[in-house]
Amino acid sequence: MTAEQPFPRAKRGGRKSIGGLALALLVAAYAVSQPQLNDRFGWQLPGFSSTAQTEPSSERPPSERPSSERPPAVSPATADVPSRTTPSGAAPSSPEPAIASPATSNATAPLYGLLTEEGNERYRSPAGLLYTRGSQEGHRLKHLERHVADDPDRPGPHGVFDGGMPGALVTVDAAYRQALAGSKTTRKDEDRRTVYTIDLGKRVGYVGGSEGQRRRNPIAKRVRLVLEQDRVITAYPL
């Protein structure tokens, strides 16, 4: 019997090799398909590289995640934006201090690297949207700031944009362009107002507020945009 031992051992070793090869192939297939699956279905499958740690987790509300796990800016266009970044490189979720007083900002430098001041505290976005005084916060940009951070105590849903104010402005512009093109957009008109709901087909933020918290902060791929002509009344992800 002892003379027969090497053969079965070799056979077992062969099985291990085949099993290891199959496992390696599965791992490789997963690594290749994981980003596509996440992007296509909005899943949050973990990856193997260090980027997996920077992807938002669906298991914890974003408000509880460390800054290194906060979602990045939503569009490559934000690379042109001189946005603040945390030491980890993640985009900030807190409002930009510059908008605390739009009227006192440098008139020659675009606000958030995007908005051109037209006087009288009016700011024009690259897509043509106008942010003016108004709202409970005193300025529509200040109101938009409410939607770059969660408000978990707020009753109902509260849409939160990824990427801080620069990310929000870029996303709103992208939504507006898509709405004008009529692509994946629903439109409701009421008096002077137009309410667009635009499906951008990728993550632009998440649903916060008490309802979002109850639903474990699902990702948001759509934007609701309330306009009066080109004036922004409000915009938020949903």
Binding site: Q136, G156, R193, R224, L238
Partner: peptide, 19 residues
């Protein structure tokens, strides 16, 4: 305080707002 203490319902015009 930016959020209403008492609301009669969600805003039917914009959706996520509180009346």
């Amino acid at each position: 305080m930016p959020t209403p203490r008492h609301s009669v319902g969600p805003c039917p015009s914009c959706g996520d707002g509180l009346g």
